[in-house]
Nucleic acid binder design. Structure first.
Length: 987
DNA sequence: GCGGACTGCTTACCT
DNA sequence: ACAGGTAAGCAGTCCGCG
């Protein structure tokens, strides 16, 4: 069969054809808009860049040919065999009827040189090279020119607008803070500060003392001094502070060292701006003459309702509750969003190209947007073939072939500039730096690039950049918002868990794919990236907006920082609102650092929760009770806050002592963290969990309220932990250990009461109690006891038909009345367990679910015995595939940083020696073999090397966790095998 | 020199 | 860089025994 022609060969042929027809390039117009005003940039430099760019574009327009491929065959219902037969170079070109005018060009197909007719001339008459698509086999090519749309786009600077504040930044050149807003037309605009706000920090030195510090007042950035009053919660009194105002945020870092004590000197300037203006990122605003007004008003009815719901709270808390309503009620913005993903050529298999060097071409860029753009742009290069479109081929996407990498990147820039929100997966560390560095390398002037590099991430001049890798890596989101559905932070794992979709598997290197495979692969990634932010009616986007509103952090910050940064910002903002001095970390450490409990685990700072001993055996009719959000409720009920625990001064003098650890808590004034955590908790329980289920609301509204309660949950669940985290600026060990101590006290007292009532407590962990066949009235009495004595809710969390306990803590199997099985902590369920084990375990669980009475257990036990028998036999006979035996384990750090060399690291070393690149986060897949290393990376192993005995040991430990519970033992099973074998031999 | 007891490191889980 | 508690596998060491 004839050799398939490559893309480049085809493109060159087209060019020759075009030249023959005299359709030359015209002068570019695409640069007209590049001179948009931008604060304070060097004009001359820009002029040079513009000339450079014009030359570049003019050159490109002369040379450039691009094309579109479409899945024409599919549309026309041709079968695969015919497609196979229609090799491009043997086939004729046709006009694509849906786009082009009805012009037959059959004549000019064979032999490109001769093939010219009126089509191109028609285009020339328009003064434009309009797209003239031609079909080539399955693909349609469309020669086009570099478009006229502006390459450089900067947000318009305005003083009056309406829209959502999504960003707050500092412009170093102009020395001003500015907000970035998606306005009501869906365009990004910026509003520069008109308040004359300047960076500052505080000191307790009086102004005259500060004036005597020459280094401060002679500093070029020094502006002036002010005297301000703040409430110091640590001392519980008003303090007079000197505000040292400067012209440049960097000066704060220098000058804070020149005073003995500095306050509020470790706050990023753009955050400080948010606090002082009391801005709420994510909310709609009206801006008039540069001044901000919230564009959402709570209805009187709604305000009244909430005020009544919080009737048991003090007046201040009730007002705060009403103030918070808009955060949860204002509708979210719906900007246009573009997801993009790039693919880069690399001659090295299995290695990610270095984005700093950007040494190899960008070979493909895929786009998917929420306004319907579906596009892949592919670079034609020597040897690149179309191949046949596979099952994954993106039939609905426009596929454009470029013969110039510069043109491809310019088009990418244009598209990035056309959207308000640009979504990537790992764009901060790969796609954007690669595009940037590659563009520079190819001579594209820096000034036209859309990327704005900040210290921590890559932003955009025009729109906002959301890097989903960063977003989904936020631990609190992973566990509290997505229920730990995904365990690895890869596009594939996250998509699988949340969308039920996968990346397209690639056997070889990306660089070896045909154009249609590359298009499919690349496009799928872009599509998954878009979907992750927009699936389920924009669930994740709505969540992000709510997280912004609660934390008061801008979009690009909130999607890139962990929960402690959100909570910190929320507290700082509330401090500023109330005129409170934000405490210094060292003062907190000094006053709140006292720890009275010892951790069970070495290396931890204080004692945590209690886990009751678990029995071994099967128990029917088990009711699981749990304390509704125990720790946040404790924080609220016990008024725990950094200023109320072991206070210097307790106005009102009402102190209570924390059991076990003996810290004293001031109850006569409201603790700030107790109030905020309590309010979020109560809002969630009393208002939004209910609204999320309210059938009188529309589905759209319920969806929104469900996201509202989920966002609150993230904050609530993380609220205790941050006070025990050393890096949290409000770190207060005495607060953290008070929470857990009260938790231990509460559960202990409840267990005691249960025993008094004659209830049988089987097990309990932190905030849960497993009761064996409790009577309804005693159960209610226990709940009443908890409510009356601790002010906490003890809820029925779940009811099991039976629970099989293995005798180990955090390890049991519960079976619901409907036969659904829930497995906790059992090794066979863990991520690293080999597949054959998981499968066998799943089958055993299914059998277990069949038992609904103790009698039925006898039957089930027999079945389980047979099943395990079979597994044992198959292992002995090595009747498994290698990958069924594979153990998966993640590297948490670079291989050379391990003190011990555990098996998975040994396997990783083997891979490195074989030339495979391994990084932290990589999951190493290995099998146990009979060799010196005892393990082998699966890529290097053979089935016959497998160490059967080791696997039998694994199976034994795994199943003993179940067998023990149901009165069986592994030895019985293996024993009977031996017995059987014994008899088999004899008779 | 061998093997069991022990400690520490590591991962994955539970709440 | 939100917390502590539990299980399990394995590396390495100590110590008693012969």
């Amino acid at each position: 069969m004839a050799r398939q022609s490559t893309l480049l060969e085809f493109l060159n042929a087209s060019k020759r054809a075009k030249r023959a027809a005299g359709a030359g390039g015209s002068s570019p117009k695409g640069t007209r808009d590049t001179s948009r005003k931008e604060g304070g940039e060097n004009r001359e430099k820009r002029g040079e860049d513009r000339n450079l760019l014009e030359m570049l574009l003019s050159e490109l327009n002369k040379k450039r040919v691009s094309a579109i491929i479409e899945d024409k065959a599919q549309k026309e219902g041709r079968d695969a065999a015919e497609v196979e037969e229609r090799k491009p170079e043997q086939k004729r070109l046709e006009i694509h009827e849906s786009v082009a005018r009805e012009v037959s060009v059959e004549a000019r197909v064979e032999g490109d040189e001769t093939s010219k007719s009126g089509v191109e001339d028609g285009a020339a008459q328009d003064g434009k090279e309009e797209a003239k698509p031609v079909i080539l086999g399955k693909h349609v090519f469309r020669p086009t020119r570099v478009s006229d749309k502006p390459l450089v786009k900067r947000p318009k600077r305005v003083l009056n607008t309406r829209g959502y504040i999504l960003g707050v930044y500092y412009d170093g050149e102009e020395g001003k803070a500015y907000t970035k807003i998606v306005d009501e037309n869906g365009e990004v605009v910026v509003v520069y500060d008109v308040y004359g706000h300047k960076p500052y920090f505080l000191t307790d030195l009086p102004p005259d003392k500060v004036r005597s510090i020459r280094e401060i007042i002679t500093h070029p950035s020094f502006d002036h001094l002010e005297t301000v009053e703040r409430m110091d919660l640590l001392l519980w009194r008003k303090v007079t502070m000197t505000k040292i105002v400067v012209k440049d945020p960097n000066a704060v870092r220098v000058l804070r060292e020149k005073v003995p004590k500095a306050w509020e000197a470790n706050i990023k300037y753009h955050h400080n701006y948010i606090y002082d203006l009391q801005l709420i990122p994510g909310m709609p605003y009206i801006v008039e003459a540069g001044k901000y007004k919230l564009a959402y008003k709570t209805g009187e009815e709604e305000a009244k309702k909430v005020y009544e719901i919080f009737a048991d709270e003090d007046e201040e808390t009730r007002r705060l509750a009403v103030d918070w309503i808009p955060l949860f009620e204002a509708p979210p913005p719906k900007p246009r969003m573009l997801a993009l993903d790039i693919e880069v050529y690399t001659p090295f298999k299995g290695r990610i190209p270095d984005s700093n060097k950007a040494a190899y071409p960008v070979i493909s860029v895929a786009f998917a947007s929420n306004d319907g753009l579906r596009k892949v742009m592919i670079l034609a290069r020597p040897g690149l073939r179309f191949g046949e479109p596979t099952a994954n081929y993106p039939a609905d996407a426009e596929i454009e072939i470029f013969d110039s990498e510069v043109a491809l990147i310019l088009e990418t820039i244009r598209l990035i500039n056309n959207y308000e929100v640009v979504i990537t997966f790992n764009g901060d560390n790969f796609d954007f730096p690669y595009l940037h560095n590659r563009a520079v390398k190819l001579g594209i002037p820096k000034s036209i690039l859309p990327f704005r590099h900040t210290r921590d991430y890559i932003s955009l001049h025009y729109g906002f950049h959301v890097d989903l890798y960063k977003l989904f890596s936020i631990k609190a989101l992973q566990s509290y918002a997505f229920g730990s559905a995904y365990k690895e932070f890869t596009l594939d794992a996250i998509s699988e868990a949340l969308l039920g979709e996968h990346k397209i598997p690639v056997e070889t290197s990306i660089s070896d794919l045909t154009a249609s495979e590359l298009a499919a692969y690349n496009f799928r990634d872009a599509m998954l990236t878009l979907k992750l932010l927009t699936f389920n009616n924009y669930l994740v986007w709505k969540l992000v907006i709510l997280l912004m509103r609660i934390s008061k952090l801008p979009l690009e910050d909130v999607t890139r920082s962990q929960v402690s940064a959100w909570i910190r910002n929320l507290f700082y903002w509330e401090h500023r609102r109330r005129g409170l001095l934000i405490p210094r970390k060292e003062d907190l450490r000094l006053l709140k650092g006292e720890q009275k409990s010892a951790a069970v685990i070495k290396g931890r700072k204080y004692a945590g929760a209690i886990v009751l001993d678990a029995p071994a055996g099967v128990f029917f009719n088990v009711v699981v009770l749990d304390f509704a959000s125990l720790y946040p409720s404790i924080i609220k009920k016990w008024n725990l806050s950094y200023e109320t625990v072991n206070p210097e001064h307790c106005p009102g003098g009402k102190l209570v002592e924390v059991p076990d650890v003996g810290h004293r808590v001031c109850m006569s004034v409201r603790g700030i963290t107790a109030q905020i955590v309590g309010l979020l908790r109560d809002f969630r329980v009393r208002v939004y969990k209910k609204k999320a289920k309210d059938k009188s609301l529309s589905e759209e509204e319920r969806h929104w309220y469900d996201v509202v309660q989920a966002a609150m949950k993230v904050y609530i669940n993380a609220s205790y932990g941050v006070f025990g985290a050393e890096n949290f600026p409000l770190y207060a060990p005495s607060v953290a250990e008070s929470v857990t101590a009260i938790g231990r006290y509460t559960i202990k007292q409840t267990v005691r009461k249960a025993a008094d009532l004659g209830l049988k407590v089987l097990y309990g962990d932190t905030d849960s109690l497993f009761l064996w066949a409790p009577s309804e009235d005693k159960l209610q009495e226990l709940q009443r006891f908890v409510e009356e004595n601790f002010g906490l809710e003890l809820e029925v969390d779940k009811v099991y038909r039976f629970v099989a306990f293995s005798g180990r803590k955090k390890n049991y199997i519960g079976v619901y009345p409907d036969g659904k099985v829930e497995v906790k902590g059992v090794v066979a369920k863990k991520r690293n367990a080999p597949m054959f084990l998981k499968k066998a375990f799943g089958e055993v669980l299914e059998l277990l679910g069949q038992a609904s009475t103790p009698e039925e257990f006898l039957v089930v036990k027999k079945k389980i015995r047979d099943k395990l028998h079979e597994v044992y036999k198959r292992l002995k006979e090595k009747d498994f595939m290698l990958d069924e035996l594979a153990i998966h384990m993640a590297l948490t750090k670079p291989v050379n940083e391990y003190a011990n060399i555990p098996p998975h690291v040994r396997a990783a070393i083997q891979l490195m020696q074989a030339g495979v690149h391994v990084m932290p986060g990589d999951v190493i897949v290995f099998v146990k073999v009979r060799s010196k290393d005892k393990v082998k990376a699966i890529q290097l192993a053979k089935l016959h090397e497998v160490d059967t005995d080791e696997y039998i040991k694994t199976v034994r430990t795994a199943f003993e966790q179940v067998l023990g519970a149901i009165g069986m033992s592994w030895d019985d099973i293996v024993g009977s095998t031996k017995l059987e074998a014994f008899f088999a031999r004899r008779f």
